[in-house]
Simulated assay, not measured.
Amino acid sequence: MEDWALIRRLVADGVPQRQVARDLGVGRSTVARAVASDGPPKYERPEVPTSFTPFRTGGAAVAGQDAGHAGDGDRRAGRLDRVDHVVPRPRPAVAA
């Protein structure tokens, strides 16, 4: 997207499209498309069925529950709070 804006700015400033393509290391057709387009390019990938698709519906129900995944930050925080009660704290030094 940054290249798209840069291409349009350079061409608007009067730099020839061939020069822009050479300086940025892109094709002349890429520069021409960027100049002709109304907005920045966007990537759209159509959803296609995979071998995992039949199992996706059951997983959606579990995903909303606390499944105990390592990435579950709230669950971890609760365990770390309990550590204070289990791990003994150091005793203060006794003066001789």
Rank of each mutant, 00 (worst) to 15 (best):
D72E: 15
R82G: 05
A5W: 05
R75M: 10
V86G: 02
L6S: 06
P41G: 10
R22F: 10
D23V: 14
A63H: 07
P41R: 05
D3T: 11
R82Y: 00
R28Q: 12
Q17D: 06
G78R: 15
L80V: 14
A12V: 01
I7P: 04
G73W: 10
P16C: 03
Q17H: 04
G58L: 06
V86S: 10
G59Q: 07
G25F: 05
H69L: 15
A63R: 12
P16L: 08
P40A: 13
V15K: 09
V26A: 03
G78L: 13
L6T: 11
V11D: 05
R9P: 00
W4V: 06
Y43P: 05
G71A: 14
M1S: 14
G27Y: 07
G71R: 10
D23W: 05
A12P: 02
V20T: 14
P46W: 05
R82Q: 12
T57I: 05
V31Y: 06
F55A: 08
R45F: 02
D13R: 14
D81F: 08
A21P: 03
P54W: 03
P49A: 15
D38F: 00
G68D: 08
A21C: 10
G68M: 07
E44Y: 12
P46T: 06
G27K: 10
G73A: 13
K42N: 05
A96D: 13
G27W: 01
P40T: 02
P16S: 11
R33A: 13
T30A: 14
T50D: 07
A93D: 11
A70C: 08
G71S: 14
E2W: 08
E47I: 12
P88S: 10
L6M: 13
T57F: 00
D13S: 14
R22C: 05
G25P: 10
V20D: 08
P92D: 04
V15H: 04
G25R: 08
V35L: 03
T50P: 01
A67V: 09
A12E: 15
T53P: 05
G58H: 04
R76E: 06
I7F: 06
V15S: 00
R91I: 11
A95I: 11
F55S: 01
D38K: 13
R9S: 14
I7K: 05
Q17P: 01
S29G: 09
V11R: 07
S37L: 04
L80W: 13
V83L: 15
F52H: 11
A61Q: 08
A61H: 04
L80M: 10
L24G: 09
E44F: 09
V20Q: 06
A61C: 02
K42L: 08
V87F: 07
L80H: 09
G25E: 02
D13Y: 01
R82E: 15
Q65I: 09
R45V: 15
Q17F: 02
T50F: 01
G39N: 09
V62T: 12
R75T: 12
G58V: 04
A96E: 14
P90L: 07
R22D: 13
R8C: 09
G73S: 13
V35E: 03
G73H: 13
G58I: 03
S29R: 13
G58T: 04
E44T: 11
T30E: 06
A93Y: 07
R79L: 15
E47Q: 12
E2Y: 09
R56L: 09
A34F: 05
Q17V: 00
D38I: 06
P49D: 15
Q65P: 00
